[in-house]
Lab assay of single mutants.
Amino acid sequence: MEVRTIKVFTTVDNINLHTQVVDMSMTYGQQFGPTYLDGADVTKIKPHNSHEGKTFYVLPNDDTLRVEAFEYYHTTDPSFLGRYMSALNHTKKWKYPQVNGLTSIKWADNNCYLATALLTLQQIELKFNPPALQDAYYRARAGEAANFCALILAYCNKTVGELGDVRETMSYLFQHANLDSCKRVLNVVCKTCGQQQTTLKGVEAVMYMGTLSYEQFKKGVQIPCTCGKQATKYLVQQESPFVMMSAPPAQYELKHGTFTCASEYTGNYQCGHYKHITSKETLYCIDGALLTKSSEYKGPITDVFYKENSYTTTIK
């Protein structure tokens, strides 16, 4: 009895394709271990004539594949690729409408935090270190965002349907971005203890939790000093293409032309909904596939993004 075979390709990165001759009487799992086709788990399936010449994702289970996976995804987590594939199996079914010149995501599976993050990423200057993220990001900007969303979920250790947080998501993504040249110098002034300067680099240099107003941050924000008295913390120097200011959701007025974009969060910790506000020729609110415009805006804002380049204080 002759062994019926077909020729397929296996890959971990969709760049390096490895030619395989597979036995049609055995499952993919018996031949390769966990195997995925377009995100779908085909591990328990036997090869079919229609699979001839198709590319299958496999887990990096030998040295060659491990090197290829690390170079593309910059992670050695053995569960990463499987999590990416199972997320992709959902995100490829989502709709990605162009809204006001940006790629958004039609609401499904509690994905409003991903839509808000995706919209924000198209408006701030950011370059990702893992080629996987950078490639998928370019495709997302062009309207094909399924891979990018699935990668975000995998890097953030999230599953489809789980509630997510924009600030946490951005923080994970910033860790995989090139923020080497970003720098922030802060000064804390206390009447009792004097003053202390701190220099922050990388992710810490672009994120701040405690106030939404970048102007206020430049002037000074009140913080408790270690001595128990009130101290003032203010920005001395900022070198970065953008800054992200966050605070627990509270009524906040966004003035046209003073910011790049913002995240609105309605609801409580267990259950809520994100919308995205962007400042173009007027203010726009993007909620999944829905767009509304207004000249002014007041609502429960939790993150505001500002364009920056270089700032030095005039406070002496």
Results as ranks from 00 to 15, higher is better:
R4I: 14
I6A: 10
V8M: 15
T10M: 08
T11F: 04
T11G: 08
V12W: 08
V12R: 08
D13W: 02
D13A: 06
I15N: 10
L17T: 09
T19L: 13
Q20M: 12
V21E: 14
V22N: 05
D23Q: 13
S25H: 10
M26G: 10
M26R: 14
M26S: 13
Q30C: 15
Q31L: 13
Q31N: 13
Q31A: 14
P34G: 09
L37E: 13
D38R: 09
D38H: 10
G39I: 07
D41R: 07
D41T: 11
V42K: 08
T43K: 10
K44F: 14
I45R: 13
K46L: 14
P47S: 05
P47M: 04
P47N: 06
N49C: 12
N49Y: 14
N49A: 13
S50L: 13
S50G: 13
H51M: 08
H51E: 12
F56G: 06
L59Q: 13
L59R: 08
L59T: 13
P60N: 07
N61A: 12
N61T: 13
D62Y: 06
D63R: 07
R66W: 09
R66L: 12
V67M: 14
V67L: 15
F70K: 10
E71I: 07
E71N: 09
E71C: 07
Y72F: 09
Y73E: 02
T76V: 14
D77C: 12
F80E: 04
L81D: 06
G82H: 15
G82P: 15
A87Y: 06
L88W: 11
N89I: 14
H90F: 14
T91M: 03
K92I: 11
W94R: 03
W94Y: 04
K95M: 11
K95I: 14
Y96V: 04
P97S: 11
P97R: 09
Q98Y: 11
V99C: 10
V99Q: 08
G101K: 04
G101V: 04
L102V: 07
L102M: 11
S104H: 05
K106G: 15
W107V: 05
W107I: 01
N110P: 06
Y113N: 01
A115E: 02
T116N: 08
T116W: 05
A117P: 01
L119S: 05
L119E: 03
T120M: 10
Q122P: 04
Q122E: 04
Q123Y: 05
E125G: 11
E125D: 14
E125W: 06
E125Y: 06
L126M: 08
L126Q: 02
L126Y: 05
K127F: 09
K127R: 14
K127N: 12
F128W: 14
P130K: 03
P131Q: 03
A132P: 05
L133E: 02
Q134L: 06
D135W: 08
A136V: 02
Y137D: 05
Y138P: 08
R139M: 14
A140E: 07
A140S: 07
R141W: 05
R141P: 03
E144I: 06
E144F: 08
A145K: 05
A145F: 02
A146D: 07
N147C: 12
A150V: 03
A150C: 02
I152H: 03
L153R: 00
A154W: 03
Y155S: 01
N157P: 02
N157A: 05
K158I: 06
K158D: 05
K158L: 03
V160K: 04
V160F: 02
G161Q: 04
G161R: 03
G161H: 04
E162T: 03
L163F: 12
L163N: 05
G164W: 06
R167N: 05
R167I: 02
R167C: 03
E168Y: 07
M170K: 01
S171C: 15
S171E: 08
S171G: 08
H176F: 13
A177S: 09
L179G: 04
D180W: 06
S181R: 14
S181W: 12
S181M: 15
V185T: 09
N187Q: 12
V188F: 07
C190W: 01
C190E: 00
C190G: 00
K191A: 14
K191W: 07
T192S: 15
G194I: 04
Q195L: 12
Q196E: 10
Q197E: 13
Q197S: 12
Q197G: 04
Q197T: 15
L200I: 09
K201Q: 12
K201S: 13
G202E: 06
G202K: 05
V203Q: 08
V203C: 08
E204C: 08
E204I: 00
A205N: 00
V206H: 02
M207G: 01
M207T: 14
Y208P: 00
M209A: 15
T211E: 11
L212E: 02
E215L: 03
Q216H: 12
K219F: 05
G220W: 01
V221S: 03
V221L: 14
V221I: 13
Q222M: 12
I223C: 14
C225N: 00
C225M: 00
T226N: 13
C227S: 01
C227A: 03
G228P: 00
G228L: 03
Q230A: 12
A231E: 00
T232I: 14
Y234M: 09
L235Q: 00
Q238N: 02
Q238G: 03
Q238F: 02
E239R: 10
S240Y: 03
S240N: 01
P241M: 00
F242L: 01
V243M: 05
V243Q: 01
M244C: 02
S246G: 00
S246H: 01
A247W: 00
P249F: 00
P249N: 00
A250C: 10
A250P: 01
Q251W: 13
K255D: 09
H256R: 12
H256K: 13
G257C: 04
T258P: 00
T260R: 05
T260H: 08
C261V: 02
C261S: 02
C261H: 00
A262M: 01
E264W: 04
T266F: 08
G267H: 11
G267Q: 14
Q270M: 08
C271T: 06
G272T: 02
H273M: 01
K275W: 00
H276S: 05
I277Y: 02
T278I: 11
S279F: 01
E281V: 02
C285V: 13
D287F: 03
D287L: 00
D287N: 01
G288N: 08
L290I: 15
L290E: 15
L291P: 06
T292P: 00
K293R: 14
K293H: 14
S294H: 15
S294L: 15
S294A: 12
S295V: 15
S295P: 09
Y297C: 07
Y297I: 06
K298P: 05
K298M: 12
K298W: 13
G299W: 00
G299V: 02
P300E: 11
P300Q: 12
T302A: 12
T302K: 01
D303F: 00
Y306D: 01
Y306A: 01
Y306W: 01
E308D: 08
E308K: 04
N309F: 09
T312I: 10
T312R: 15
T312F: 11
T312H: 10
T314N: 14
T314E: 09
